[in-house]
Design a binder for these strands. Structure first.
Lengths: 117, 117
DNA sequence: ACCAGGTACTGTGCAATGCATGGAACCTGA
DNA sequence: TCAGGTTCCATGCATTGCACAGTACCTGGT
């Protein structure tokens, strides 16, 4: 009955909390290379260690991005299966991603500074 | 009436979200070098770019750490002002910090991988 | 024709966390 | 006496990852 959803099992508490506020920008970064649809984003994220997530995370996230005007979407038929909703960056989305890429190095170095001492 | 609290002004939305789940372990990392009290932790965090926070963040966080058994506390008189509550790592706290330091590099590299492409 | 299974999208509710806000208690110095 | 600095605490809100449940489309076997 339950397809157990896609995606992999949950991670540790620390990993889960780490993703907060970062996953959003990782998605924007992936979309920088062109339009992608939901399950495709899941696969791209899951291919990188520590970024595995599930549909229950990605779809509400994509809804928020759309609501905030960071992405636009358009439907496209699939060769096999239901139609896919493709997500694409808006100018606002590009700006948000640019802001994050400016902040991230400082933040990363700050954490490194504390834990490697 | 209101001392406007200590700490610096709020940061951007992205910075604020980045801190989620990381601040906790930065505090544990600072405590690795010995017992510290609340305001002292605020100053240490604020000395690093991107880690500024406020009393409204640090005290609830410290309460959680105490509730979860990651830190122990003891009171000590201050040379000027009210007594200070010093926080110190427990074995559980050391273990949690160790777990985070093992996860963090993978996570950091994963984010780097996405945004620098 | 029917139905099981995979693909793809959507929504609701919970838990964790940063933060604003408000307040209490203690000490020093004018 | 009292203004101001120091130190601590608690409540409530917004955000966000996630589990869970549901809907809809297509393909292939019987």
């Amino acid at each position: 009955m339950e397809p157990d959803i896609a995606g992999k099992p949950a991670a540790s508490k620390a990993e889960s909390q780490l993703r907060k506020g970062v996953l959003e920008y990782c998605v924007l970064a992936i979309l920088r290379d062109g339009p992608r649809y939901g399950v495709e984003l899941l696969e791209t994220l899951g291919a990188v260690n520590g970024m595995v997530t599930s549909q229950g995370t990605i779809y509400p996230l994509l809804s928020r991005l759309r609501r905030d005007g960071l992405v636009e979407t358009h439907w496209q038929e699939s060769p096999s299966g239901p139609p896919r909703r493709y997500y694409e960056l808006t100018p606002s989305g590009h700006a948000a991603l640019k802001e994050f890429t400016a902040i991230w190095p400082h933040f990363r170095d700050a954490v490194d500074h504390f834990i490697t001492d």
